[in-house]
């Protein structure tokens, strides 16, 4: 189970710059954590984040092990049209998780 918190304003005026905040559950295993057997815990991080809105990737991030566990990402975008925003995280193994939020633009 992995949980995500998404904060998108329910309503916005067209052309308004809105703030989007995301918090997703993930250990962000760095690959640098030594194990008792002398090796290291294999790296497993979310390496990519994308926000797709109104037919376009409006914001994306490539993440490295220096991003904290349970990554928090906040950014801004222009409210263009009512509808769905898609949030996508991709981990080192290519596993994809997606969340959606809707916004009403007037």
């Amino acid at each position: 189970m992995s949980r995500a918190l998404i904060n998108v304003p329910a309503k916005a005026r067209k052309g308004e710059v809105i703030q989007i905040r995301t918090l997703v559950q993930h250990e962000m295993e760095t690959g640098f954590r030594p194990l008792p057997n002398g090796g290291f815990a294999p790296r497993l991080i979310l390496r990519r984040f994308e926000c797709i809105y109104d037919g376009e990737t409006v914001f994306a991030a490539d993440l490295h092990p220096a991003i904290s566990a349970n990554p928090y990402l906040a950014f801004r975008t222009v409210a263009t049209t009512s509808g769905e925003m898609l949030f996508r995280w991709i981990d080192d193994r290519g596993a994809v998780r997606e969340e959606r939020a809707t916004i009403e633009v007037t």
Binding site: T30, F32, R33, P34, L35, P36, A41
Partner: peptide
């Protein structure tokens, strides 16, 4: 199970 210590990185 013991897990590795230090905070951020070794």
């Amino acid at each position: 199970r013991a897990r590795r210590p230090a905070a951020v990185f070794a």
